[in-house]
Design a protein around this nucleic acid. Sequence first.
DNA 1: AACGACTACCTAGGATCACTATATAGTTAA
DNA 2: TTAACTATATAGTGATCCTAGGTAGTCGTT
Lengths: 112, 112
Amino acid sequence: MNQNLDPNLLKGNLDLILLTILEEGEMYGLEIIQEAQIRTNGYFDFKEGSLYPALHRLTQAGLLTSEFRESDLGGPRRKYYTLTEKGQHSLSKKRNDWKQFSSAIDQLKGAK
Amino acid sequence: MNQNLDPNLLKGNLDLILLTILEEGEMYGLEIIQEAQIRTNGYFDFKEGSLYPALHRLTQAGLLTSEFRESDLGGPRRKYYTLTEKGQHSLSKKRNDWKQFSSAIDQLKGAK
DNA sequence: AACGACTACCTAGGATCACTATATAGTTAA
DNA sequence: TTAACTATATAGTGATCCTAGGTAGTCGTT
């Protein structure tokens, strides 16, 4: 992740984050890391050791498909990941779970 | 946790939840579980196997203190947990981390 | 006094998952 | 050919929540 933040916050949410980013179109590994940084002003800064196993896990689960393609700038080929329909459904569910969880946390304080 | 929710959402947030509940006053183990249920309409439903190790961890870290007291209704004695000053500071920090993380997640969509 | 029901605390072992660290390999420029 | 950069990959580690039990005290009923 990032600087001095609790890395456990990410647990269970990395999948949501990756699916969210890929919702707008196919992307390859390092590009996803860059996108996450850009969209959150550097807050999310995944390491490759977090990203690739997660992408493989999601692909294994049928939420993503992948395809190698040559780089337009030279350099090694890139593996592009695309959201499947099943992935889209899973994203909706995860988004919903997150909302519920998030509001439950907010309810804790102030309640009673 | 609960029904069919991703248990990983809780990772890294259980401490925040426990400290939040204990912020309003000392409480014993099973009472904390009940409070969490009540305040979130049953959404949070910790198991004892999650709760007690977490309480011990937080006590070990100096964020809580504990004291046995007799039950007013008979039954086994209860171990009451109280937030320390260090625990209060930690709670503030965790609360802040959560806010940042939560808003980063929200930024992901819609951005770009 | 013996039993069951209830309350309360505790822990070992397993599974998941992100991170650290390292490996491999292709391209480009010096 | 060396270095720098890009890109994908994975073994090993550590944190942490859950499953599945266990221990023990009190109370009411028989």
